[in-house]
Design a protein around this nucleic acid. Structure first.
Length: 262
DNA sequence: CGGATTTGACCAGCGC
DNA sequence: GCGCTGGTCAAATCCG
């Protein structure tokens, strides 16, 4: 397969592939095979804008223990999320900035964003499950949207239309995390640790690691472009990919992996 | 030979 | 009500 080699610590079996409208690249569907009956699925799709980008959407919660690598990944990502939420990251302007991505979403519903450097490449995770808004369980439809990438960054948190906000809320229930990652090397991807089911607990430890990741990411102009392209891809191509089969307590995440050589 | 992947068909949900 | 799109299934094929 041409699919990603991002090993997230779990074993996945491909069970389908589809051409998504608006995206010349097919979307692949995987199931976790680490345990029989594990409900976790993931979708992998290349970004139409930049095919070096892989967008992976996780859905469901593992019903089995995860490898240590996965747990380690979780620790760093949650820690990074904690840091992000604390506002320790320097803000930056411009749509293309990953910090903005986090900042654009966080104010809306106490969502979470995560940066991680535990892998050979920095990872940004937006954890969107940690909001108590009841709407998130009531919105029946619309998929992931990132209004600020549609031209009006400010709207998301403050001036967004009710519909947009509702959609955002719903999306947060569907995408418990939005993970953005950029490969620094090209052959190191397999070393990436996995991301176990998101946990509400935030571990405030490896802030330094996270800072390093943030620095690496923000100082890398290529990443910003890649990120924007990936988000655009989500907006345009990931629609209602996660509409169903999700219960309120299910977990889904989106990982955007950039393979663009620096 | 067994397991994983590929690929086309089928089904369900949604929008028009 | 119809058509479109996305998601899943299952048979065929490939690889180790």
């Amino acid at each position: 397969m041409d699919l990603l080699q991002i090993s997230d610590g779990c074993q996945w079996r491909k069970y389908g592939q589809k051409m998504a409208k608006g995206n010349p690249c097919p979307r692949a569907y995987y199931r976790c095979t680490m345990a029989v009956g594990c409900p976790v699925r993931k979708q992998v799709q290349r970004c139409a804008e930049d095919r070096t980008i892989l967008v992976t959407t996780y859905e469901g919660t593992h019903n089995h223990p995860l490898p240590p690598a996965a747990m380690a990944m979780a620790s760093t990502t949650t820690a990074a999320a904690s840091m992000l939420l604390s506002g320790s990251m320097s803000s930056a302007d411009g749509i293309m900035n990953p910090n903005l991505l986090a900042r654009a979403i966080i104010p809306c519903n106490s969502s979470m964003a995560t940066l991680s450097a535990s892998a050979p490449f920095p990872t940004v995770t937006l954890d969107l499950t940690h909001n108590p808004n009841p709407l998130q369980f009531q919105r029946p439809a619309t998929p992931f949207q990132v209004p600020f990438l549609q031209g009006q960054p400010q709207n998301f948190g403050s001036g967004a239309t009710p519909i947009a906000q509702a959609q955002a809320l719903y999306n947060q229930s569907k995408f418990s995390g939005l993970q953005l990652s950029q490969e620094v090397g090209s052959s190191q991807l397999a070393a990436q640790a996995s991301r176990p089911p998101l946990q509400s607990s935030q571990q405030p430890s490896p802030a330094d690691t996270v800072s390093a990741a943030a620095a690496a990411i923000t100082s890398n102009p290529n990443f910003t472009a890649v990120l924007a392209a990936a988000i655009s891809s989500i907006i345009g191509g990931a629609h209602d990919a996660n509409n169903n089969t999700n219960n309120n307590n299910s977990t889904s995440r989106t990982t955007i992996s950039s393979f663009s050589g620096n």
